[in-house]
Each structure stands twice: as C-alpha cells, then as structure tokens.
Amino acid sequence: MPLLDVRDLSVVFRRKGAEPFTAVDGVSFSVDPGQTVGLVGESGCGKSVTSLAIMGLLPRRGNTVAGEVLFEDTDLLRLRPQDLRDRRGRDIGMIFQDPLSSLNPVIPLGLQVAEVLERHQGRTRQAALREARQLLEAVGIPDPARRLKEFPHQLSGGMRQRALIAVALACKPRLLIADEPTTALDVTIQAQILALLKDLVDRSGTALVMITHDLGVVAGLCDTVNVLYAGKVVERAGRHDLFAQPRHPYTHGLLQSVPRLDADRGRRLHQIPGSVSDNIPWTEGCAFAPRCARVIDDCIGATVALEPTRRRDGALRCTNPVPQEVPA
C-alpha cells in the first residue's frame, strides 16, 4: 500500500477579472514507504503548487483544490485545518528552495530547530535544544553548540540548507517533500546536500518527493520520475527507463538539452523551441503540440489520455511517442 497516493489532484486559481488558471490538472502519482519519487518539469508546470496543495499550504482564498491526497488512507484535503496542522512537520516534512529566506532572520538557529520538537513532541525548551544540537551534528554542521546561538545570516548557504533539513527531519516524518532543495546553492554544495539527503532518507526509511527542474538531481536520487507539463503528468517511468529511453517528446527534448562533457564542442546545445505561453489547452489536444518536434494531426482535437506503458510503473500521454529502440 502506498504511503502517499495523490489521485486526480487539480488546483485552479481564480482571480476577479481574469480567466481561471488551472495550475495542476488532474495529477496522480503515488509514493511507497521509503521510496524516492521525482516531480520534474520546467517553471510553471505545477510542481510547487502540487507540493503546496499536498501540504494544505495554498492561500485560503482564490483557489479551488479538487481530487484526493491519501496519506496512509487519510485524505489530507478533507482534514480539518487543525488536524492537518498537527500532521505537518510530524508526519510530513518539507524543505524549501531558498534556505536563507526560509529561516527566520531574527531567531537564533537553535530555537528554530527546537520549536518543531516542542510543538510536536511536547519537549521542554532545554530538552529540545539538546536534541537540536544532535540534529545539527547529524546533518554535518560543525561546532553545533556554537551554531545553535547564531542567526541565519551568520551561516553559509550550504549550512543553512543543512539546518533546514535538520528541522524537516527533526520529528522523523514518514514523508519528506523537497521543493528544489538545491537550486539556490552552488554546484559543489548541491552535490553535498543531495548526498546528505540520500543518506538520511535511506537510513531513516523516509519516503521522499523530490521536486526539481534539474535532471541531474533526478538521475542521482529518484526511483520513479513523473514528468509534468502544463499541470499534467506526461510521462512516468523508473529512473533507468526514463534516462535510457524517454518516450514523450518533451522528456526527450529535456534530456537532449542537458549539456554533456563528451558532446561535440562546435555544436549548439539542443533546445525546445517556443515557451509555455505557446501551449494550447489540454481540452483541445496536447498542450505541448505547438512546441513538439513529433507533432502530427492527431495531436490536436481531443484530450490525450495518460496510458499505462509496459514498463514498470510506466505511463505516457502521447499520440506519437518517440519509438522504442529494440535492443539488438
């Protein structure tokens, strides 16, 4: 039984004087205990909104959330706000993109780590601070006793993200949602943080939902990958299948666009033409069609369904997929 089962999740933003905007359009995916699942896509495809909807952190006004988010058979979308609040931070942890702005600038680090322990595990301030020190040590922050008293601006970017990971994992949640956890860090620190995350989730058996636009992160970390485009899952596959044989032209294009060290230097980097603003509505065909290299007449007209593929956990939403190479 999956730990998290997102079924047909939709988020529609409504604003006065503007067309309603469907940011997430019937997304379904599931996460097994201890599994790492990736949500990949470019800016504006609905990755972050999906994660905020799961956590119930979208603004109260101006949007409609539909579908089901089953966490161990409890529908998070139908929980009372105070019950959901009790689960956030305890059962589900979350890490955000920018570690500096996600930490409160005027509160010492120690109190920020201790707070979640006081809140969910009823620790006293002293006990929580002692445990905070161990947590900082566990995420590889040197001299944790001193860091407890320091303020976020006194830490380096990598240390801040380590601290946020310590906070998110403090109550040993069963699920961790990481929303672009390495985007604000430079490349060497990115690698350290990813290694740390992988190590921690492996050891504690925490399931991880990794939201990213960075295919390198996906390749290093995820068991299963969901590729999102314009609010819908367009392809789902195991990590190896996806990288070896992308079937959706969008996934294919993304992988082609990754710079490679062994590529011919004289050649221009591949790019997907156009931008998300060229999309057509999903109701009138495939949203990606105007930018697609493999577009055919059948792509326009009717909604394209997400069909299971023969690969394990695989699914594909495409009328003219990239042909599967037959192993020789």
């Binding site: 956590m55 956030r88 931070g89 955000f96 920018d98 996600s102 409160n104 707070e115 979640v116 809140r119």
Partner: peptide, 14 residues
C-alpha cells in the same frame, strides 16, 4: 507572504 512564515506553517506551527 514571506518564505519563513510558509516554512513555519509547513512545520505545523499554530
């Protein structure tokens, strides 16, 4: 609207 308040809410702070 700030990130640190969102982060606090994500931790279930009342």
């Amino acid at each position: 609207e700030s990130d640190h308040v969102l982060a606090a809410r994500a931790l279930g702070v009342r």
